Amino acid sequence: MEVRTIKVFTTVDNINLHTQVVDMSMTYGQQFGPTYLDGADVTKIKPHNSHEGKTFYVLPNDDTLRVEAFEYYHTTDPSFLGRYMSALNHTKKWKYPQVNGLTSIKWADNNCYLATALLTLQQIELKFNPPALQDAYYRARAGEAANFCALILAYCNKTVGELGDVRETMSYLFQHANLDSCKRVLNVVCKTCGQQQTTLKGVEAVMYMGTLSYEQFKKGVQIPCTCGKQATKYLVQQESPFVMMSAPPAQYELKHGTFTCASEYTGNYQCGHYKHITSKETLYCIDGALLTKSSEYKGPITDVFYKENSYTTTIK
């Protein structure tokens, strides 16, 4: 009895394709271990004539594949690729409408935090270190965002349907971005203890939790000093293409032309909904596939993004 075979390709990165001759009487799992086709788990399936010449994702289970996976995804987590594939199996079914010149995501599976993050990423200057993220990001900007969303979920250790947080998501993504040249110098002034300067680099240099107003941050924000008295913390120097200011959701007025974009969060910790506000020729609110415009805006804002380049204080 002759062994019926077909020729397929296996890959971990969709760049390096490895030619395989597979036995049609055995499952993919018996031949390769966990195997995925377009995100779908085909591990328990036997090869079919229609699979001839198709590319299958496999887990990096030998040295060659491990090197290829690390170079593309910059992670050695053995569960990463499987999590990416199972997320992709959902995100490829989502709709990605162009809204006001940006790629958004039609609401499904509690994905409003991903839509808000995706919209924000198209408006701030950011370059990702893992080629996987950078490639998928370019495709997302062009309207094909399924891979990018699935990668975000995998890097953030999230599953489809789980509630997510924009600030946490951005923080994970910033860790995989090139923020080497970003720098922030802060000064804390206390009447009792004097003053202390701190220099922050990388992710810490672009994120701040405690106030939404970048102007206020430049002037000074009140913080408790270690001595128990009130101290003032203010920005001395900022070198970065953008800054992200966050605070627990509270009524906040966004003035046209003073910011790049913002995240609105309605609801409580267990259950809520994100919308995205962007400042173009007027203010726009993007909620999944829905767009509304207004000249002014007041609502429960939790993150505001500002364009920056270089700032030095005039406070002496």
Rank of each mutant, 00 (worst) to 15 (best):
G33W: 02
A150L: 00
G228E: 01
T226H: 13
N16H: 10
D38I: 08
T103L: 04
Q195D: 13
M207L: 05
S181H: 14
Y306E: 09
A132I: 02
N14K: 08
T258G: 10
E215N: 06
V12Q: 06
S294D: 09
N89Y: 09
H18E: 13
G164Y: 03
T103S: 06
G161M: 02
D180I: 07
Y155A: 05
H276G: 01
N61D: 15
A289H: 14
G202M: 02
G272W: 00
L163T: 15
D23I: 11
N111V: 03
G53C: 10
K298W: 13
E162G: 05
H18R: 08
F56E: 05
E144D: 14
T120E: 05
K191N: 13
F9N: 10
T226F: 09
E162F: 02
N89P: 07
M26G: 13
K106T: 12
K106W: 11
H48Q: 10
V3A: 14
L37H: 13
Y72D: 08
C227G: 01
Y138F: 12
M207R: 06
L212S: 04
G164R: 00
K183D: 00
C190W: 00
M209R: 11
L173C: 04
P34S: 12
V42P: 06
V236L: 09
C227R: 01
L133W: 02
Y57N: 09
C225Q: 02
K280S: 12
Q195P: 09
P60K: 00
Y155S: 05
E204R: 11
Q216M: 08
Y96T: 02
L119W: 01
A146K: 01
K293S: 13
D23K: 13
E296M: 04
T199Y: 07
S86R: 12
A150Y: 05
N49D: 14
P249W: 00
L118V: 09
S294G: 04
G220Y: 00
E296K: 09
N157R: 05
D41G: 00
Y284G: 08
T35V: 15
G82F: 14
Q30C: 10
A108T: 02
V160A: 08
M170Q: 03
L153K: 04
Y84P: 07
A262N: 01
Q238H: 07
T282G: 13
Y234V: 08
N61E: 06
H176L: 13
G202H: 00
T282Y: 11
V21M: 14
A146T: 01
C149I: 10
N309F: 03
L283I: 15
S79Q: 06
C182E: 05
S294K: 09
K233V: 13
Y72L: 08
L37Q: 14
F242L: 01
I223N: 02
Y306H: 00
K44Y: 10
P248A: 07
Q175P: 09
H276E: 00
T55K: 11
Y172Q: 13
V243S: 01
V304I: 08
R141W: 08
D62F: 08
P34E: 14
Q270L: 11
K93N: 10
V12L: 02
K201S: 13
R141D: 02
T76L: 12
F174S: 02
N187Q: 12
C285T: 09
G164K: 09
R184D: 04
D180G: 10
E239R: 10
C182L: 08
V21A: 13
V185M: 04
V188A: 06
K316F: 15
T278S: 13
P241A: 11
R66V: 12
I6Y: 07
E253M: 06
T55Q: 09
K233G: 09
Y269I: 15
L153Q: 02
Y311G: 04
L102H: 14
Y265H: 01
N49Q: 00
R83E: 06
K191T: 14
P60V: 08
V236M: 10
K316P: 15
P131H: 04
P78A: 13
T35R: 13
P60I: 07
R4S: 12
H273W: 02
V58F: 02
V99D: 03
M24V: 12
K44P: 13
K219L: 10
T10D: 07
S295C: 06
Y172I: 15
Y137S: 05
T282M: 09
D287E: 04
F128Q: 01
H276K: 01
K93A: 06
Y72I: 06
A262M: 01
I105Y: 06
Y311C: 15
Q196T: 12
A250S: 11
N49H: 09
P300W: 15
G143C: 05
Q237F: 12
D23H: 06
C225N: 00
K275Q: 05
I301S: 00
A262C: 03
A69S: 09
K280I: 09
I105E: 00
E162K: 05
I223L: 08
G33C: 02
D63C: 08
Y252S: 08
P300G: 01
Y96I: 08
D62I: 07
L254F: 08
T64A: 10
A146F: 04
H273C: 02
V166L: 13
Y84F: 14
Y234C: 02
C182S: 08
L186C: 10
H18W: 08
A69W: 05
Y265V: 10
E68D: 07
V67T: 13
T64F: 09
F148A: 00
S295K: 12
A40N: 15
H176E: 00
P224K: 14
T76Y: 08
C193R: 05
M85Y: 15
K93D: 12
Y57L: 09
T64I: 11
I315K: 15
T226E: 11
C285K: 10
T266A: 07
D23R: 10
H51I: 04
I277S: 01
L59N: 14
G161P: 01
C225G: 02
S213M: 02
N111C: 04
N110S: 07
E239W: 04
E144F: 07
M24D: 07
T292R: 11
G288M: 09
H48T: 15
I45E: 14
E253V: 13
M26Q: 15
T232G: 02
Q175I: 09
P248I: 13
N14W: 09
Q251Y: 15
D109K: 01
E71R: 10
Y73P: 07
T5M: 14
G267E: 15
V99W: 12
Q238K: 02
Y73G: 04
S79T: 13
C271F: 15
F259A: 02
P34C: 15
A117W: 01
D109S: 03
G220A: 02
F70T: 06
K218V: 03
T314A: 13
E204L: 04
L121F: 07
K218P: 02
V12G: 06
P130Y: 01
V12A: 09
H48R: 13
I301H: 07
K293M: 14
Q222W: 03
N49K: 11
T313I: 12
P34Q: 04
M244Y: 04
K44C: 15
Y137H: 08
V221E: 02
A154Y: 02
Y269F: 13
I6M: 11
P300C: 14
S279R: 00
N129T: 10
L212C: 11
D13P: 15
A40Q: 14
V185E: 11
A205P: 06
I6K: 11
Y113E: 04
L59M: 13
Y84K: 08
A177K: 03
F32Q: 10
K298C: 13
A150T: 01
T75E: 08
S279M: 03
C149P: 02
V304S: 04
S86M: 09
P248L: 15
E264Y: 09
Q238Y: 06
D13W: 15
S79M: 15
F32P: 00
S240G: 06
R4P: 12
V99M: 13
K92Y: 11
T198K: 12
Y172G: 11
T35W: 08
V206H: 04
K95D: 15
K93M: 10
S294T: 14
C190E: 03
H276T: 03
H90V: 13
K7W: 12
C285S: 13
T35Q: 07
Q251M: 15
Q20W: 07
L65R: 08
F9G: 06
A262K: 00
Q196E: 09
G202E: 01
D180L: 04
Q20L: 09
K127R: 12
A87Y: 03
N16F: 08
G194I: 08
T199D: 04
T11R: 01
L102N: 01
E71Y: 04
E264P: 00
C193F: 01
S171R: 15
T198N: 08
M209Q: 13
A142P: 04
Q230H: 06
Q237M: 11
K106M: 04
P131V: 02
Y28F: 07
T64R: 12
Y306T: 05
Y113T: 03
K44M: 11
S213C: 08
L102G: 07
K293Y: 09
T75R: 11
A177S: 07
K106Y: 06
G299I: 01
L254C: 05
S79A: 10
T43W: 04
Q98F: 15
P60M: 08
Q122T: 02
Q222H: 02
Y269L: 12
